[in-house]
């Protein structure tokens, strides 16, 4: 998957986690926590959804890489290159 595809995947997941959220104005360089008030339970969900939908495994020590859209896409690009 290209970085743009990965971004779409994350947007889809966020839409599911936070159905009341308007994601069209999401800023890629600002943390999810700050913009959407996501907490640790929500981050677990992003991890679980990636596993459920795309079989991507993310070790617990690396959850921090999912802080913002930018960092998430950067982190996932090598992991999802062959999907």
């Amino acid at each position: 998957m290209s970085p743009a595809d990965i971004r779409d995947v994350i947007i889809e997941i966020l839409e599911d986690i936070a159905p009341d959220e308007d994601l069209s104005s999401l800023k890629d360089d600002v943390s999810f926590r700050e913009q959407m008030e996501l907490d640790s339970m929500d981050f677990l969900d992003i991890v679980m959804e990636l596993r459920k939908r795309h079989r991507v495994q993310i070790p617990e020590e690396e959850y921090g890489e999912l802080a913002s859209m930018e960092s998430t896409v950067t982190y996932l690009t090598p992991k999802m290159a062959d999907i």
Partner: peptide
């Protein structure tokens, strides 16, 4: 109220994939 993102109600709805 709807739109509030913090607190147990909002968190519970998100985690169970319910709409407000």
């Amino acid at each position: 109220p709807k739109g509030e993102k913090k607190g147990p109600l909002a968190r519970m709805l998100r985690q169970l994939r319910f709409k407000w």
